[in-house]
Design a binder for these strands. Sequence first.
DNA 1: CTCGTTAATGACCCATAAGTCAGCAATTAT
DNA 2: ATAATTGCTGACTTATGGGTCATTAACGAG
Lengths: 202, 202
Amino acid sequence: MSKPRYQRRKQDRPQEITEAAFDAFAEKGYASTRVEEVAKRAGVSKGLLYLYFKTKEELFKAVVRNVVVRRVDALTEIVETTELSSEAFIRGPASTFLKEVPGSPVAVIIRLLISEGPRHPDLLEYYYNNVVSKGLAVIKRIVSRGIERGEFRPSVVDDLPHLFLAPVMLSVVWRSLFAKKALDTDKLIDTQLELLLTHIKA
Amino acid sequence: MSKPRYQRRKQDRPQEITEAAFDAFAEKGYASTRVEEVAKRAGVSKGLLYLYFKTKEELFKAVVRNVVVRRVDALTEIVETTELSSEAFIRGPASTFLKEVPGSPVAVIIRLLISEGPRHPDLLEYYYNNVVSKGLAVIKRIVSRGIERGEFRPSVVDDLPHLFLAPVMLSVVWRSLFAKKALDTDKLIDTQLELLLTHIKA
DNA sequence: CTCGTTAATGACCCATAAGTCAGCAATTAT
DNA sequence: ATAATTGCTGACTTATGGGTCATTAACGAG
């Protein structure tokens, strides 16, 4: 007669819940987000949420892992298969990728990690191993390949891939705090890449 | 006979309480810090704290204002009175100042702002007006004076003083998250300044 | 169409922590 | 000395929200 009050969908629940949690955390931050609010957004009861995630903290960790997975590995793949010159790669795909970060879910995760990270050491460890170190390695790979090919010359930059990320980091923070105060983050990142290229080109 | 159970020190209390609060917030973050913990550190009762600060939020704002005041204004002063060349100033006092930030109380404030800022718009406004915009203005001032003097040439960097701050921002975040993963933040900042100087020198 | 299994509900419990206030005792005034 | 003032205390109230669990009902098996 009437449609059932709910459906059993064991398979989809975890994914749906982490997605709802991501949205909620993005808006309110971890501490200010109510578990009940997450459940509501996911269209389930609070009780069910606790069936899939032991605690709020577990939920948080699941969110971070969920968003972060894939991205960096995808970039690594591209680097290894591209036929572009090192300079062209930096000006092209790398530049595009870096400029996307400040407006992407990754930016949200970075913000959450800055806020909550210090109280979740294991999460930071995971994030460092699976995102940061891989990201830095990719940059180093591009630079050193450029050197091998004679496009670039060795320099201090070789050991500071962080220089490529610095303007991205600033952009992420700026946007989350001063969204209203204009800052052309694309130009900021482009200019930094320009500086770096000028410096390392043979 | 016995020493009094407490002393009345109306003058000193607010300062002592904000200092205690700064320490507590630095360690635990805003949300996880208990007001009672702050009172304990300041050596007063919770009730007294509420006599000086209406709410926990007010206390937080007082802390931010307290730490931030002075610093930037001091730098502005130095810039206007120095007799160094623009390049020497950047390599000297400016470099020193920037390298100090990641290990200073300012770094703690930046972390707190990233975490709590989005829910305290008036605080962000205050911080932007009194710290960020002044800081950016000082950098611009140095660069444009260099141009007037013929030391530097005009370039895109003129409108992106943020490039000077980017490695500092990254250092602040890095230290707060990955204290254990070595990163020579001094070298990072020095190198960035080197890149920028190379680019703008006439 | 049962009946057993278990996904899902939502009312409930209770620890926590922000904020209050009646009274007390350190100062200051007389 | 005594009284008036007020800085200060700490036990209390209250709301909030994380986490539980007895119960319900969707669904698949026979």
